[in-house]
């Protein structure tokens, strides 16, 4: 066949060209920027390379528009800081204008700050914050483990899914504090009660997030994985888990919010000296002593911890996941 020998010739010539041209440049014009075009563009391979380099340059030109890091930080920090300042200002103005009709009193930002500073001492709020965060960390970690196993089982076993999934979404609607009375009857006012409430708050979110993530894995990824030779555990490790990660992380993010919220409610209701302090308990103490600044201060602490953990861990993780996959807007 005539063209077979022609093909062979071209192939041989190309390999020779590559061998001498290595390393780096396969052909001139591959690197960014216009390459000088030789007068005789004899080699088809080379003109193809130049054409391709031109196409690549044209099609990826619009992408690189990077802002300096300090502007990114500023654009993230400035708006919430302004909003916070505005809230404090409005609050202060309200207090200053003596908005205290009848029984309702509003302590000012200054009062709350002073109260927090005065009560922070090693025996009071500092210890309570540490205690709550410690419990939340333990409860959340356990929730992730249980939620992950549960989610995997439900996602993989069809009859189990049919049976349990409605229940799971139902549990998300039920405020987990509703379990406090039962917990107290079963376990007494003990850490077990508090952890039960935290788990029942966070586990459903994490499991549902994982199931969602697994359901949304495009089937083509699994087919590609199989064609590449990923079977069994390899397929789970290299394809399924990374593909399901965005849903899983957003489930964890929501799970954290539920865990923290449930913990505060549980601490507020289940109080006993053997439980040690806790921010919820500080709030109860403030209520019993009609200490309005301390009660408001506790709420602010709860907010700061909840928002802080989210901003430090989950938000960056989620942002990164979405950005690397080209799913975020920015």
């Amino acid at each position: 066949m005539p063209h077979d020998t022609a093909a062979h010739d071209t192939a041989a010539r190309d390999t020779a060209a590559r061998d001498t041209a290595l390393p780096g440049a396969v052909a001139p014009g591959t690197a960014a920027g216009p390459a000088p075009v030789p007068a005789a563009a004899d080699d088809g391979e080379q003109s193809l390379a130049r054409l391709e380099a031109g196409l690549d340059a044209l099609e990826s030109a619009a992408v690189s528009d990077r802002r300096p890091w300090w502007r990114i930080v500023l654009s993230r920090l400035l708006p919430p800081a302004v909003a916070l300042a505005a809230i404090v200002l409005v609050w202060d103005v309200l207090v200053w204008a003596h908005v205290r009709s009848g029984e309702i009193m509003l302590p000012g930002p200054g009062d709350v700050w002073n109260s927090l500073v005065a009560e922070w001492g090693p025996s009071r709020i500092g210890a309570a914050v540490w205690d709550s965060v410690y419990r939340a960390a333990i409860g959340f970690t356990a929730s992730v483990l249980i939620g992950t196993v549960l989610g995997l089982l439900i996602a993989r076993i069809a009859p189990l899914r049919a049976a349990v999934q409605p229940l799971l979404s139902g549990l998300q609607n039920l405020p987990s504090v509703a379990w406090v009375p039962i917990g107290i009857i079963w376990f007494g006012v003990s850490p077990a009660t508090i952890y039960t409430v935290v788990l029942l708050g966070a586990v459903p979110s994490i499991a549902v997030g994982l199931i969602d993530g697994l359901d949304r894995v495009p089937p083509i990824y699994l087919r590609v994985g199989r064609n590449l030779g990923a079977r069994g555990l390899d397929s789970v490790r290299f394809v399924l888990i990374p593909a399901a990660l965005p849903g899983y992380v957003s489930g964890m993010k929501q799970g954290w919010a539920f865990a923290w919220r449930s913990l505060m409610a549980a601490e507020l209701i289940a109080i006993s000296p053997q439980l040690g302090p806790g921010v919820g308990q500080v709030m109860k103490f403030a209520q019993e002593n009609l200490d309005l600044p301390l009660a408001l201060g506790s709420i602010i602490i709860i907010l700061i911890i909840g928002i802080g953990i989210n901003q430090l861990f989950f938000a960056p993780l989620e942002r990164r996941l979405l950005r690397t996959r080209g799913l975020s807007r920015s």
Binding site: Y221, P242, L245, T324
Partner: peptide, 29 residues
């Protein structure tokens, strides 16, 4: 015993870089 398959959509894994996608294929081999 096996054939490599390429689809209409590239189906590159979005969590890996271009090199990462190729390296995964090599790793699984």
């Amino acid at each position: 015993g096996r054939a490599a398959l390429m689809f209409q959509e590239s189906a590159l894994f979005p969590w890996l870089t271009a090199a990462g996608n190729i390296e995964l294929a090599l790793r699984l081999r």
